[in-house]
Design a binder for these strands. Structure first.
Lengths: 230, 230
DNA sequence: CTGCATCCGCCTCGATACTG
DNA sequence: CAGTATCGAGGCGGATGCAG
Protein backbone atom coordinates (compact mmCIF):
# COMPACT_ATOMS: atom_id res chain seq x y z
CA UNK A 1 0.00 0.00 0.00
CA UNK A 2 3.01 2.22 0.41
CA UNK A 3 3.24 4.69 -2.41
CA UNK A 4 6.32 4.44 -4.61
CA UNK A 5 9.01 6.90 -3.60
CA UNK A 6 12.28 8.02 -5.15
CA UNK A 7 13.92 7.86 -1.74
CA UNK A 8 16.11 10.87 -2.34
CA UNK A 9 16.83 13.71 0.05
CA UNK A 10 16.08 16.22 -2.69
CA UNK A 11 13.27 18.77 -2.81
CA UNK A 12 12.42 17.97 -6.43
CA UNK A 13 12.23 14.26 -5.71
CA UNK A 14 10.09 14.95 -2.62
CA UNK A 15 7.73 17.05 -4.70
CA UNK A 16 7.46 14.32 -7.31
CA UNK A 17 6.84 11.71 -4.64
CA UNK A 18 3.64 13.60 -4.00
CA UNK A 19 2.77 14.97 -7.45
CA UNK A 20 4.60 12.73 -9.90
CA UNK A 21 1.92 10.18 -10.63
CA UNK A 22 -0.21 10.35 -13.71
CA UNK A 23 -3.07 12.92 -13.65
CA UNK A 24 -2.04 14.52 -10.35
CA UNK A 25 -0.60 17.75 -11.77
CA UNK A 26 -3.53 18.11 -14.15
CA UNK A 27 -5.85 17.87 -11.16
CA UNK A 28 -3.95 20.76 -9.62
CA UNK A 29 -4.36 22.67 -12.87
CA UNK A 30 -8.12 22.23 -12.63
CA UNK A 31 -8.27 23.21 -8.97
CA UNK A 32 -6.23 26.37 -9.55
CA UNK A 33 -9.31 27.70 -11.35
CA UNK A 34 -11.40 27.28 -8.20
CA UNK A 35 -13.16 24.62 -6.11
CA UNK A 36 -14.60 21.69 -8.05
CA UNK A 37 -16.96 18.82 -7.39
CA UNK A 38 -15.95 15.24 -8.02
CA UNK A 39 -17.87 15.05 -11.27
CA UNK A 40 -16.55 18.41 -12.40
CA UNK A 41 -13.06 17.00 -12.10
CA UNK A 42 -14.11 13.82 -13.84
CA UNK A 43 -15.31 15.68 -16.90
CA UNK A 44 -12.51 18.25 -16.74
CA UNK A 45 -9.97 15.43 -16.99
CA UNK A 46 -11.23 13.38 -19.93
CA UNK A 47 -9.90 9.84 -19.80
CA UNK A 48 -9.22 9.59 -16.07
CA UNK A 49 -10.67 6.53 -14.38
CA UNK A 50 -12.98 7.23 -11.43
CA UNK A 51 -10.99 5.03 -9.06
CA UNK A 52 -7.78 6.83 -10.00
CA UNK A 53 -9.41 10.20 -9.37
CA UNK A 54 -10.72 9.05 -5.98
CA UNK A 55 -7.31 7.64 -5.07
CA UNK A 56 -5.51 10.85 -6.02
CA UNK A 57 -7.98 13.01 -4.13
CA UNK A 58 -7.50 10.97 -0.98
CA UNK A 59 -3.75 11.19 -1.37
CA UNK A 60 -3.73 14.94 -1.96
CA UNK A 61 -5.89 15.41 1.12
CA UNK A 62 -3.59 13.48 3.42
CA UNK A 63 -0.68 15.45 1.96
CA UNK A 64 -2.44 18.69 2.88
CA UNK A 65 -2.70 19.96 -0.69
CA UNK A 66 -6.45 19.60 -1.16
CA UNK A 67 -9.34 19.82 1.27
CA UNK A 68 -13.00 18.94 1.08
CA UNK A 69 -15.48 21.67 1.85
CA UNK A 70 -19.23 21.93 1.71
CA UNK A 71 -20.66 24.68 -0.42
CA UNK A 72 -22.74 27.41 1.27
CA UNK A 73 -26.35 26.36 2.14
CA UNK A 74 -28.28 26.63 -1.15
CA UNK A 75 -26.15 24.01 -2.89
CA UNK A 76 -25.46 21.35 -0.30
CA UNK A 77 -22.71 19.65 -2.18
CA UNK A 78 -19.10 18.77 -1.47
CA UNK A 79 -16.27 20.40 -3.34
CA UNK A 80 -12.54 19.90 -3.42
CA UNK A 81 -10.33 22.95 -3.18
CA UNK A 82 -6.66 23.75 -2.83
CA UNK A 83 -5.24 24.53 0.58
CA UNK A 84 -2.72 27.40 0.85
CA UNK A 85 -0.01 24.76 0.39
CA UNK A 86 -1.71 23.58 -2.78
CA UNK A 87 -2.09 27.11 -4.06
CA UNK A 88 1.67 27.49 -3.78
CA UNK A 89 1.86 25.12 -6.73
CA UNK A 90 0.68 27.96 -8.96
CA UNK A 91 4.22 28.96 -10.02
CA UNK A 92 5.00 25.34 -10.82
CA UNK A 93 2.02 24.93 -13.11
CA UNK A 94 2.50 28.34 -14.70
CA UNK A 95 6.14 27.66 -15.56
CA UNK A 96 5.17 24.24 -16.86
CA UNK A 97 2.47 25.75 -19.06
CA UNK A 98 4.83 28.40 -20.34
CA UNK A 99 7.33 25.75 -21.35
CA UNK A 100 4.60 23.56 -22.77
CA UNK A 101 3.78 26.26 -25.31
CA UNK A 102 6.70 24.91 -27.34
CA UNK A 103 4.68 21.76 -27.92
CA UNK A 104 1.18 23.21 -28.19
CA UNK A 105 0.95 23.84 -31.90
CA UNK A 106 -2.51 23.60 -33.38
CA UNK A 107 -5.36 21.54 -31.93
CA UNK A 108 -5.36 18.03 -33.31
CA UNK A 109 -8.64 16.66 -34.69
CA UNK A 110 -10.65 14.94 -32.01
CA UNK A 111 -8.54 16.39 -29.22
CA UNK A 112 -10.10 17.68 -26.04
CA UNK A 113 -9.98 21.44 -25.75
CA UNK A 114 -11.27 24.00 -23.29
CA UNK A 115 -10.90 27.77 -23.11
CA UNK A 116 -9.99 27.56 -19.43
CA UNK A 117 -6.72 25.76 -20.15
CA UNK A 118 -5.64 28.63 -22.34
CA UNK A 119 -7.01 31.39 -20.14
CA UNK A 120 -4.61 30.27 -17.46
CA UNK A 121 -1.82 31.37 -19.77
CA UNK A 122 -2.92 34.96 -19.24
CA UNK A 123 -1.88 34.49 -15.65
CA UNK A 124 1.56 33.27 -16.68
CA UNK A 125 2.15 36.25 -18.93
CA UNK A 126 0.59 38.91 -16.74
CA UNK A 127 2.47 42.13 -16.07
CA UNK A 128 2.37 42.12 -12.27
CA UNK A 129 3.88 45.58 -12.04
CA UNK A 130 0.96 47.05 -13.98
CA UNK A 131 -1.41 45.25 -11.62
CA UNK A 132 -0.07 47.02 -8.52
CA UNK A 133 -2.64 48.96 -6.56
CA UNK A 134 -5.42 47.73 -8.78
CA UNK A 135 -8.41 45.67 -7.63
CA UNK A 136 -10.90 44.61 -10.27
CA UNK A 137 -11.95 41.65 -12.37
CA UNK A 138 -12.52 40.93 -16.05
CA UNK A 139 -14.99 38.38 -17.30
CA UNK A 140 -14.52 36.26 -20.41
CA UNK A 141 -17.27 34.37 -22.19
CA UNK A 142 -15.80 31.98 -24.74
CA UNK A 143 -18.17 29.78 -26.70
CA UNK A 144 -20.20 28.58 -23.72
CA UNK A 145 -17.62 28.87 -20.97
CA UNK A 146 -17.62 31.70 -18.50
CA UNK A 147 -14.35 32.57 -16.82
CA UNK A 148 -12.80 35.59 -15.22
CA UNK A 149 -9.49 37.05 -14.16
CA UNK A 150 -9.08 38.63 -10.74
CA UNK A 151 -6.57 41.44 -10.33
CA UNK A 152 -5.77 42.20 -6.71
CA UNK A 153 -2.86 44.55 -6.06
CA UNK A 154 -0.11 42.72 -7.89
CA UNK A 155 -1.80 39.33 -7.88
CA UNK A 156 -3.43 38.10 -11.07
CA UNK A 157 -5.42 34.87 -11.04
CA UNK A 158 -7.71 33.15 -13.52
CA UNK A 159 -10.89 31.54 -12.18
CA UNK A 160 -13.78 29.61 -13.56
CA UNK A 161 -17.32 30.95 -13.45
CA UNK A 162 -18.74 34.47 -13.58
CA UNK A 163 -16.91 37.35 -11.91
CA UNK A 164 -18.38 39.16 -8.92
CA UNK A 165 -18.57 42.69 -10.29
CA UNK A 166 -16.56 42.69 -13.50
CA UNK A 167 -15.52 46.06 -14.92
CA UNK A 168 -15.38 44.39 -18.30
CA UNK A 169 -17.06 41.49 -20.10
CA UNK A 170 -15.51 40.08 -23.26
CA UNK A 171 -17.44 37.67 -25.48
CA UNK A 172 -15.94 35.64 -28.31
CA UNK A 173 -16.07 32.22 -29.92
CA UNK A 174 -13.24 29.78 -29.37
CA UNK A 175 -11.62 30.25 -32.78
CA UNK A 176 -11.42 34.00 -32.33
CA UNK A 177 -9.94 33.49 -28.89
CA UNK A 178 -7.29 31.25 -30.43
CA UNK A 179 -6.59 33.78 -33.16
CA UNK A 180 -6.16 36.52 -30.56
CA UNK A 181 -3.75 34.33 -28.64
CA UNK A 182 -1.83 33.49 -31.77
CA UNK A 183 -1.65 37.21 -32.60
CA UNK A 184 -3.03 36.62 -36.06
CA UNK A 185 -5.71 39.18 -35.26
CA UNK A 186 -5.84 42.18 -32.94
CA UNK A 187 -8.60 42.95 -30.50
CA UNK A 188 -9.57 46.02 -32.53
CA UNK A 189 -9.86 44.00 -35.73
CA UNK A 190 -11.92 41.32 -34.00
CA UNK A 191 -14.33 43.95 -32.68
CA UNK A 192 -14.60 45.50 -36.15
CA UNK A 193 -15.44 42.09 -37.61
CA UNK A 194 -18.07 41.45 -34.97
CA UNK A 195 -16.16 38.48 -33.59
CA UNK A 196 -15.40 40.09 -30.24
CA UNK A 197 -17.81 41.99 -28.04
CA UNK A 198 -16.64 44.30 -25.29
CA UNK A 199 -18.95 45.44 -22.58
CA UNK A 200 -17.94 47.81 -19.82
CA UNK A 201 -15.52 50.62 -19.22
CA UNK A 202 -13.26 51.23 -22.26
CA UNK A 203 -10.47 52.35 -19.95
CA UNK A 204 -10.74 49.01 -18.16
CA UNK A 205 -10.24 47.37 -21.52
CA UNK A 206 -7.00 49.27 -21.94
CA UNK A 207 -5.85 48.21 -18.49
CA UNK A 208 -6.76 44.58 -19.16
CA UNK A 209 -4.72 44.57 -22.36
CA UNK A 210 -1.79 46.19 -20.58
CA UNK A 211 -1.83 43.70 -17.72
CA UNK A 212 -2.81 40.53 -19.55
CA UNK A 213 -1.75 41.05 -23.13
CA UNK A 214 1.55 42.80 -22.89
CA UNK A 215 4.09 40.10 -22.22
CA UNK A 216 1.98 37.15 -23.27
CA UNK A 217 3.84 34.61 -25.32
CA UNK A 218 1.72 33.89 -28.37
CA UNK A 219 0.13 30.46 -28.38
CA UNK A 220 -1.32 28.35 -31.12
CA UNK A 221 0.87 30.17 -33.59
CA UNK A 222 4.36 29.53 -34.88
CA UNK A 223 6.07 32.53 -33.31
CA UNK A 224 8.05 30.24 -31.05
CA UNK A 225 9.88 27.16 -32.24
CA UNK A 226 7.47 24.30 -32.11
CA UNK A 227 8.42 20.65 -31.77
CA UNK A 228 6.22 17.74 -32.64
CA UNK A 229 5.61 15.38 -29.76
CA UNK A 230 7.23 12.08 -30.67
CA UNK B 1 4.44 1.57 -29.02
CA UNK B 2 2.71 4.92 -29.02
CA UNK B 3 3.46 6.87 -25.90
CA UNK B 4 0.48 7.55 -23.67
CA UNK B 5 -0.93 11.05 -24.16
CA UNK B 6 -3.49 13.12 -22.32
CA UNK B 7 -4.93 14.29 -25.65
CA UNK B 8 -5.70 17.75 -24.40
CA UNK B 9 -5.07 21.03 -26.18
CA UNK B 10 -3.45 22.47 -23.08
CA UNK B 11 0.16 23.56 -22.60
CA UNK B 12 0.45 21.83 -19.22
CA UNK B 13 -0.88 18.56 -20.63
CA UNK B 14 1.46 18.86 -23.62
CA UNK B 15 4.41 19.39 -21.29
CA UNK B 16 3.42 16.37 -19.23
CA UNK B 17 3.01 14.26 -22.36
CA UNK B 18 6.74 14.75 -22.79
CA UNK B 19 7.96 14.98 -19.18
CA UNK B 20 5.30 13.29 -17.12
CA UNK B 21 6.62 9.77 -16.96
CA UNK B 22 8.51 8.48 -14.00
CA UNK B 23 12.16 9.61 -13.70
CA UNK B 24 12.03 12.08 -16.58
CA UNK B 25 12.00 15.29 -14.54
CA UNK B 26 14.71 13.95 -12.26
CA UNK B 27 16.86 13.33 -15.33
CA UNK B 28 16.38 16.98 -16.25
CA UNK B 29 17.40 17.92 -12.71
CA UNK B 30 20.66 16.02 -13.17
CA UNK B 31 21.36 17.51 -16.58
CA UNK B 32 20.78 21.06 -15.36
CA UNK B 33 24.06 20.64 -13.46
CA UNK B 34 25.92 19.97 -16.69
CA UNK B 35 26.50 17.26 -19.33
CA UNK B 36 26.52 13.69 -18.03
CA UNK B 37 27.48 10.27 -19.31
CA UNK B 38 25.03 7.39 -19.30
CA UNK B 39 26.63 5.81 -16.26
CA UNK B 40 26.77 9.15 -14.43
CA UNK B 41 23.02 9.40 -14.85
CA UNK B 42 22.59 5.80 -13.76
CA UNK B 43 24.32 6.41 -10.45
CA UNK B 44 22.84 9.88 -10.05
CA UNK B 45 19.37 8.35 -10.21
CA UNK B 46 19.52 5.45 -7.75
CA UNK B 47 16.87 2.88 -8.49
CA UNK B 48 16.28 3.63 -12.16
CA UNK B 49 16.38 0.59 -14.43
CA UNK B 50 18.91 0.81 -17.30
CA UNK B 51 16.30 0.13 -19.95
CA UNK B 52 14.10 2.89 -18.56
CA UNK B 53 17.00 5.34 -18.63
CA UNK B 54 17.86 4.41 -22.21
CA UNK B 55 14.23 4.72 -23.25
CA UNK B 56 13.85 8.14 -21.64
CA UNK B 57 17.07 9.42 -23.19
CA UNK B 58 15.93 8.37 -26.66
CA UNK B 59 12.58 10.03 -26.09
CA UNK B 60 14.09 13.28 -24.82
CA UNK B 61 16.38 13.39 -27.84
CA UNK B 62 13.57 13.02 -30.35
CA UNK B 63 11.68 15.71 -28.44
CA UNK B 64 14.66 18.05 -28.83
CA UNK B 65 15.27 18.43 -25.12
CA UNK B 66 18.52 16.47 -24.86
CA UNK B 67 21.35 15.93 -27.32
CA UNK B 68 24.32 13.58 -27.44
CA UNK B 69 27.75 15.14 -27.78
CA UNK B 70 31.26 13.79 -27.72
CA UNK B 71 33.59 15.24 -25.16
CA UNK B 72 36.73 17.10 -26.33
CA UNK B 73 39.65 14.81 -27.40
CA UNK B 74 41.27 13.68 -24.13
CA UNK B 75 38.14 11.93 -22.92
CA UNK B 76 36.60 10.37 -26.01
CA UNK B 77 33.26 9.59 -24.44
CA UNK B 78 29.69 10.44 -25.18
CA UNK B 79 27.71 12.73 -22.95
CA UNK B 80 24.08 13.80 -22.82
CA UNK B 81 23.37 17.48 -22.42
CA UNK B 82 20.36 19.77 -22.47
CA UNK B 83 19.51 21.67 -25.62
CA UNK B 84 18.41 25.32 -25.25
CA UNK B 85 14.85 24.01 -25.18
CA UNK B 86 15.80 21.66 -22.35
CA UNK B 87 17.53 24.43 -20.47
CA UNK B 88 14.28 26.37 -20.53
CA UNK B 89 13.00 23.80 -18.05
CA UNK B 90 15.17 25.44 -15.39
CA UNK B 91 12.31 27.60 -14.01
CA UNK B 92 10.07 24.54 -13.87
CA UNK B 93 12.53 22.52 -11.81
CA UNK B 94 13.43 25.47 -9.60
CA UNK B 95 9.82 26.21 -8.74
CA UNK B 96 9.22 22.52 -8.13
CA UNK B 97 12.22 22.34 -5.79
CA UNK B 98 11.11 25.45 -3.95
CA UNK B 99 7.70 23.93 -3.35
CA UNK B 100 9.24 20.57 -2.47
CA UNK B 101 10.99 22.19 0.48
CA UNK B 102 7.70 21.81 2.35
CA UNK B 103 8.21 18.06 2.27
CA UNK B 104 11.97 17.87 2.65
CA UNK B 105 12.31 17.63 6.42
CA UNK B 106 15.28 15.72 7.66
CA UNK B 107 17.09 12.99 5.73
CA UNK B 108 15.59 9.59 6.46
CA UNK B 109 17.97 6.79 7.42
CA UNK B 110 19.17 4.88 4.38
CA UNK B 111 17.95 7.57 2.02
CA UNK B 112 20.04 8.67 -0.93
CA UNK B 113 21.49 12.13 -0.51
CA UNK B 114 23.82 14.32 -2.51
CA UNK B 115 25.03 17.88 -1.96
CA UNK B 116 24.26 18.77 -5.58
CA UNK B 117 20.53 18.34 -5.06
CA UNK B 118 20.65 20.96 -2.35
CA UNK B 119 23.13 23.25 -4.06
CA UNK B 120 20.57 23.73 -6.82
CA UNK B 121 18.41 25.43 -4.23
CA UNK B 122 20.91 28.29 -4.12
CA UNK B 123 19.92 28.95 -7.71
CA UNK B 124 16.25 29.08 -6.78
CA UNK B 125 16.83 31.58 -4.00
CA UNK B 126 19.44 33.73 -5.72
CA UNK B 127 19.07 37.49 -5.70
CA UNK B 128 19.33 38.14 -9.43
CA UNK B 129 19.40 41.89 -8.97
CA UNK B 130 22.56 41.63 -6.91
CA UNK B 131 24.08 39.50 -9.66
CA UNK B 132 23.72 42.19 -12.31
CA UNK B 133 26.97 43.24 -13.99
CA UNK B 134 28.89 40.57 -12.12
CA UNK B 135 30.78 37.73 -13.77
CA UNK B 136 32.52 35.29 -11.44
CA UNK B 137 32.17 31.82 -9.98
CA UNK B 138 32.23 30.26 -6.52
CA UNK B 139 33.40 26.73 -5.84
CA UNK B 140 31.95 24.45 -3.18
CA UNK B 141 33.62 21.31 -1.87
CA UNK B 142 31.18 19.32 0.24
CA UNK B 143 32.34 16.00 1.66
CA UNK B 144 33.83 14.66 -1.56
CA UNK B 145 31.71 16.47 -4.12
CA UNK B 146 32.98 19.46 -6.03
CA UNK B 147 30.42 21.89 -7.39
CA UNK B 148 30.31 25.53 -8.35
CA UNK B 149 27.95 28.38 -8.98
CA UNK B 150 28.39 30.59 -12.03
CA UNK B 151 27.26 34.21 -11.82
CA UNK B 152 27.00 35.90 -15.19
CA UNK B 153 25.35 39.30 -15.27
CA UNK B 154 22.02 38.47 -13.71
CA UNK B 155 22.16 34.75 -14.43
CA UNK B 156 23.00 32.40 -11.58
CA UNK B 157 23.50 28.68 -12.29
CA UNK B 158 24.77 25.76 -10.27
CA UNK B 159 27.05 23.26 -12.03
CA UNK B 160 28.83 20.07 -11.13
CA UNK B 161 32.62 19.85 -11.11
CA UNK B 162 35.34 22.39 -10.38
CA UNK B 163 34.93 26.02 -11.41
CA UNK B 164 37.12 27.58 -14.07
CA UNK B 165 38.72 30.40 -12.08
CA UNK B 166 36.76 30.64 -8.83
CA UNK B 167 37.13 33.80 -6.77
CA UNK B 168 36.17 31.74 -3.75
CA UNK B 169 36.44 28.15 -2.59
CA UNK B 170 34.31 26.93 0.31
CA UNK B 171 34.98 23.57 1.97
CA UNK B 172 32.65 21.85 4.43
CA UNK B 173 31.31 18.45 5.37
CA UNK B 174 27.73 17.55 4.49
CA UNK B 175 26.31 18.00 7.98
CA UNK B 176 27.69 21.52 8.25
CA UNK B 177 26.27 22.31 4.82
CA UNK B 178 22.88 21.11 6.03
CA UNK B 179 23.17 23.17 9.20
CA UNK B 180 24.00 26.27 7.17
CA UNK B 181 20.99 25.64 4.96
CA UNK B 182 18.75 25.14 7.96
CA UNK B 183 20.08 28.37 9.46
CA UNK B 184 20.96 26.63 12.70
CA UNK B 185 24.49 27.96 12.30
CA UNK B 186 25.93 31.03 10.58
CA UNK B 187 28.88 31.05 8.22
CA UNK B 188 30.94 33.00 10.74
CA UNK B 189 30.22 30.47 13.48
CA UNK B 190 31.08 27.56 11.22
CA UNK B 191 34.40 29.16 10.33
CA UNK B 192 35.14 29.80 14.01
CA UNK B 193 34.45 26.13 14.78
CA UNK B 194 36.69 24.96 11.98
CA UNK B 195 33.81 23.35 10.14
CA UNK B 196 33.90 25.71 7.19
CA UNK B 197 36.96 26.82 5.27
CA UNK B 198 36.97 29.86 3.05
CA UNK B 199 39.67 30.42 0.49
CA UNK B 200 39.83 33.46 -1.74
CA UNK B 201 38.82 37.08 -1.70
CA UNK B 202 36.87 37.98 1.48
CA UNK B 203 34.90 40.58 -0.48
CA UNK B 204 33.85 37.82 -2.88
CA UNK B 205 32.58 35.93 0.15
CA UNK B 206 30.38 38.88 1.04
CA UNK B 207 29.06 39.05 -2.52
CA UNK B 208 28.37 35.33 -2.56
CA UNK B 209 26.37 35.55 0.66
CA UNK B 210 24.44 38.54 -0.67
CA UNK B 211 23.58 36.84 -3.95
CA UNK B 212 23.08 33.26 -2.77
CA UNK B 213 22.18 33.49 0.89
CA UNK B 214 19.91 36.48 1.09
CA UNK B 215 16.52 35.21 0.03
CA UNK B 216 17.21 31.53 0.41
CA UNK B 217 14.39 29.64 2.04
CA UNK B 218 15.88 27.56 4.83
CA UNK B 219 15.91 23.86 4.11
CA UNK B 220 16.29 20.85 6.35
CA UNK B 221 14.89 22.86 9.23
CA UNK B 222 11.41 23.49 10.50
CA UNK B 223 11.17 27.17 9.62
CA UNK B 224 8.51 26.42 7.07
CA UNK B 225 5.50 24.22 7.69
CA UNK B 226 6.53 20.68 6.95
CA UNK B 227 4.21 17.89 5.99
CA UNK B 228 4.98 14.23 6.22
CA UNK B 229 4.73 12.38 2.94
CA UNK B 230 1.89 9.93 3.26
C1' DC C 1 34.51 -0.13 -18.40
C1' DT C 2 30.54 2.03 -20.89
C1' DG C 3 26.09 1.54 -22.93
C1' DC C 4 22.70 -0.64 -23.47
C1' DA C 5 19.01 -5.23 -24.54
C1' DT C 6 16.42 -8.98 -22.62
C1' DC C 7 13.61 -11.44 -19.49
C1' DC C 8 10.52 -11.78 -15.59
C1' DG C 9 7.27 -10.48 -11.87
C1' DC C 10 4.77 -6.91 -9.71
C1' DC C 11 1.96 -3.15 -9.45
C1' DT C 12 -0.14 0.86 -11.46
C1' DC C 13 -3.30 2.29 -14.60
C1' DG C 14 -7.49 2.31 -17.79
C1' DA C 15 -12.11 0.60 -18.79
C1' DT C 16 -16.35 -0.93 -17.40
C1' DA C 17 -19.84 -2.24 -14.24
C1' DC C 18 -22.11 -1.48 -10.15
C1' DT C 19 -23.80 0.75 -5.51
C1' DG C 20 -25.28 4.18 -1.61
C1' DC D 1 -23.89 12.69 -7.61
C1' DA D 2 -20.02 10.42 -5.62
C1' DG D 3 -17.71 7.23 -5.51
C1' DT D 4 -16.34 1.40 -5.01
C1' DA D 5 -15.32 -3.26 -7.20
C1' DT D 6 -13.29 -5.99 -10.60
C1' DC D 7 -10.32 -7.34 -14.27
C1' DG D 8 -6.91 -7.16 -18.05
C1' DA D 9 -2.91 -4.67 -20.21
C1' DG D 10 1.17 -2.55 -19.78
C1' DG D 11 4.74 0.39 -17.53
C1' DC D 12 8.23 -0.21 -14.30
C1' DG D 13 11.93 -2.34 -11.08
C1' DG D 14 15.53 -5.80 -10.58
C1' DA D 15 18.73 -8.97 -12.28
C1' DT D 16 21.39 -10.68 -15.88
C1' DG D 17 23.87 -10.82 -20.28
C1' DC D 18 26.63 -8.94 -23.90
C1' DA D 19 28.76 -6.03 -27.52
C1' DG D 20 32.04 -2.26 -28.44
Amino acid sequence: MARRSYDQYCPAARALDVLGERWTLLMIRELLLGPKRYTDLLEGLPGIAPNVLADRLRHLQTAGIVQRSSLPPPAASMVYELTPLGDELRPVLLSLMTWGLHFLGQPKPGENASPRWLLQLLEAGADLGAARGLRESYQFCIDGSVLHVVVDDGRVEAREGPAHEPVLVSTTDFDTFLALGARTITAAEAVAQGKLEFEGDPEAGERAITILGGRLIPFGGTDIPVRAAA
